[in-house]
Amino acid sequence: MMLSRLRVVWTVFYMYLKQIAIDGFIIFTVIIQPLLVALLAIYLLRDSDGFQAIYVIVGSALTGIWSGTLFFNSFNIQSERWSGNLENIIGSPTDLQTVVLGKALANTTISLGSVLFSYPIAALLFRFRLTIAHPFLFIVSLLLTILALMSLGLVIAPIFSLNPGNIMWINAFEFPMYILGGFLFPVLMLPAWTTPISYILSPYWAARALHDTSSGITFLSDVLISWGLIIFLSLTYLFISNWLFRVLLRRAREKATLGLQ
């Protein structure tokens, strides 16, 4: 049972990754936008106290990772609906969540390309020497970032498919995460009432873990706390996602909106 599910996840992941890798919108979101954000952030921050190029690179890459997660996952279910595949998926023995999991994994994987493409701009254009302070801890943080964003993607996908009108709100969520996630500036700059919101967002803890392990940490316990909270929040998101998928399918069957465009 588990093996067959994993096979479906792998097949969807592989097929979907090939499909989206050449999409112009994805090229923009994963490559061009983080590059331009990095360029802007470097010019802005390079004369500020305590400037670290790696902080800007990781932060800019996070903007691309989040935009990718948001936009690609929002359309995970809708795109199947638009192409007339949703009924077939629902009718198949594999549950919809397993199929969407493969797509979310592909989306997060391709979004991580932002890290690869933001790096050269600082290295080549600005001639910064980029070093990751704790490479092993950084790689673990990166893997946990995949978990954090994939599980968040599994919440985003059904939310934007519950009602056809929800898809219109996508744009409104892009910059708030850049701000609340503390990607390029500390959330301490924001009004105090926003801090609890940051704390319940896994990208915030992912950003903290990535920044701490790339720029240099003060205490290992800080990173361990971030990792722990990423895992806890990801499990919570998966639980919420499970419930949302059940609501989505029940509602679609009750209202006969499965193939509704």
């Binding site: 952030a41 802005l44 004369d47 500020s48 910059f175 701000i179 390029l184 500036f185 924001l190």
Partner: peptide, 11 residues
């Protein structure tokens, strides 16, 4: 808001 905070974090 994002660019405002990014800007004032620098300058």
């Amino acid at each position: 808001l994002f660019f405002l905070y990014l800007g004032i974090s620098a300058t």
